[in-house]
């Protein structure tokens, strides 16, 4: 059975159940990064880790160059491997589809990070500005604390292009359900069996490819090197920063 190891059964398409989902309309994303900043502020997300990001990539040759933006966040998979593999049930799936963390339980073994095909998870460093939750794994929560109060997530709230749209995909009248129903959409790595619940509209080849490609420019590569240097010189998790 597919739901082995989930605290909540997959609910996509199950009548009478909520299933929160996000649609990212790539036609509308202007790469403004408002979502990234809003999310950082909402959770006091420290430097060096991200709950959401927007990748930027140029393609083509002068004068036919173009620019692509690719917002990324946790897919709140309906069949999340991160949950299945967590040895403590610190990460769990809520019945409305959120994949969440119990910080007080997490041992920081990073198995969930290994399990997630999307790099959606990260280890919180020792130091933050304001919030006292450290040295455990964290991730996008789909802003469950806002959603449960009837609000959209913080990144959706501020999205300038209205590229991020949030709602209950099981409700046929919701905007997300209508968008997914009437547009060509894609999810990331559907072959991993995770049943991602972040849907991309107008996913051209370039946007999807850029989601998995390494930095090409020297500028970005140098930054990557600085990033690893900060991590005691290693690309592999090394000491708890």
């Amino acid at each position: 059975m597919i739901s082995i190891g989930l605290q909540a059964e997959p609910s996509y398409g199950v009548p009478g159940k909520k299933r929160w989902a996000m649609v990212v309309d790539l036609r509308r994303c202007i790469g403004c990064m408002a979502c990234v900043a809003a999310c950082k502020a909402e959770y006091d997300v420290p430097l060096g880790v991200w709950r959401t990001t927007v990748q930027v990539k140029n393609t083509g040759k002068f004068p036919n160059a173009r620019r692509n933006f690719m917002p990324r966040l946790c897919n709140h998979c309906d069949n999340p491997p991160c949950v299945r593999n967590c040895p403590t049930a610190a990460t769990y799936k809520h019945e409305e589809g959120f994949v969440l963390q119990r910080y007080e339980r997490c041992i920081g073994c990073r198995t969930c990070m290994i399990a997630c095909p999307y790099n959606a998870r990260f280890m919180l460093p020792r130091n933050r500005t304001r919030v006292g939750i450290n040295n455990v794994v964290d991730k996008c929560t789909f802003c469950d604390h806002r959603v449960s109060q009837g609000l959209v997530p913080a990144c959706v709230q501020t999205c300038l292009g209205r590229a991020r749209i949030f709602g209950d995909i099981n409700d046929p009248n919701s905007e997300v359900a209508r968008l997914v129903g009437t547009h060509k959409t894609a999810t990331l790595k559907p072959n991993k069996g995770t049943r991602p619940q972040v849907y991309y509209i107008k996913p051209d080849r370039k946007s999807m490819e850029q989601a998995t490609s390494a930095p090409v420019s020297a500028a970005a590569r140098r930054d990557a090197e600085a990033f690893y240097r900060h991590n005691n010189g290693s690309r592999f998790f090394s000491a708890h920063l």
Binding site: Y43, R146, L151, V152, S174
Partner: peptide, 18 residues
């Protein structure tokens, strides 16, 4: 037949304390 869409903003809650 109209979804009860989430509010677009105007309020916020602490993710830690609620």
């Amino acid at each position: 037949l109209v979804a009860m869409e989430q509010e677009l903003g105007g309020a916020d809650y602490s993710p830690v304390t609620g």
